[in-house]
Design a protein around this nucleic acid. Sequence first.
DNA 1: ACCCTGTTTCGAAGTCTGTCAAGCTAGAAG
DNA 2: CTTCTAGCTTGACAGACTTCGAAACAGGGT
Lengths: 117, 117
Amino acid sequence: MVDLNAVACCSPLAVRPMDAEQAAVVAPLFKALGDPIRLRLMSMIASVPEMCVCDLTPAFDLSGPTISHHLRVLREAGLVDSERRGTWVWYRVKPEAFRQLRALLDLSAAPAASSTA
Amino acid sequence: MVDLNAVACCSPLAVRPMDAEQAAVVAPLFKALGDPIRLRLMSMIASVPEMCVCDLTPAFDLSGPTISHHLRVLREAGLVDSERRGTWVWYRVKPEAFRQLRALLDLSAAPAASSTA
DNA sequence: ACCCTGTTTCGAAGTCTGTCAAGCTAGAAG
DNA sequence: CTTCTAGCTTGACAGACTTCGAAACAGGGT
């Protein structure tokens, strides 16, 4: 499980190089989004307040266990939260992680942009 | 090599779900940043206008070929550009890819944030 | 008890990370 | 021009990690 307080300490990529420890904390977030299935799962969950696994699974040509596995990766990266309510399990985005990723990317291209092309 | 025009077509995660094709285009960008070494390489390159491989390699406890390999992943993802000038090879950030990633994350957490917690 | 939903476990197939050795390019020395 | 050296990349390979499905399991409703 990712410690989002540790993530919060990182400045945007372009400001100064990350040390190994920061990179080790943030990389798993990118890694979790680095799979097309998980990216689609994320975007489906993010497009509504919350989403039932029973609506996610049929959107893919993959078995239930496989979807469950990808959802676990997203969960363990701290990108989503799940909650069982009766028969179904509902997934919801955790906004903090996204804020951190965005902060990291925010200025990352700026210096290069002003000095090239 | 990533087609950035294809990336440009994607709306933020929260607006509507991505289709499989969009996900297949964008996921490799996240994947490339999903390794701690590559994330540090990126942040080192992004922190200056351009950076020589000869300055990148000694920052890691890894062999030259390994760093070269990671740089290739970043290059093939379209995140950086390289240019040989005389003896040395210089790497530079390609801002377009970052703009796309940022656009994708920009609103991704908003709806969930306003309807939960 | 039974069914339905979703997760876990396990194993097969594929992909990624790292090393060593060999190759290639550019400049310097003879 | 040939040879030498430095800087990076490429190719081949071992070991670790991923992705996926089949089967078994757990939680909840009827």
